[in-house]
């Protein structure tokens, strides 16, 4: 599983935020568009794309996109 691809999949769950905003260092919970719905969309995307079941607490414990990527990678 690739970090860049993960970032693209992550960015795809957003409507208003420009894809260029998303890097491995993005603190995603600070984004204006971040909400409970985007959180649930990320969980569903990770399940669909990577076959990994994330919990809300996994999202909570991650700060940057790379943090979340590592959590998914470790659960795979």
């Amino acid at each position: 599983m690739e970090l860049q691809e993960f970032i693209t999949n992550f960015a795809n769950q957003f409507e208003e935020t420009d894809p260029s905003v998303f890097t491995k260092d993005t603190v995603f919970k600070d984004l204006d568009e971040w909400s409970s719905l985007t959180a649930l969309s990320i969980i569903a995307m990770v399940d669909e794309e990577y076959g990994v079941t994330l919990k809300g607490d996994d999202i909570r414990s991650a700060n940057t996109l790379e943090d979340l990527f590592n959590i998914v990678k470790n659960k795979k």
């Binding site: 409970s36 649930l40 969980i43 994330l54 919990k55 809300g56 607490d57 999202i59 909570r60």
Partner: peptide, 9 residues
């Protein structure tokens, strides 16, 4: 209990 929704939420 599956945990998608956190206690905080």
């Amino acid at each position: 209990s599956e945990g998608k929704i956190t206690q905080e939420q």
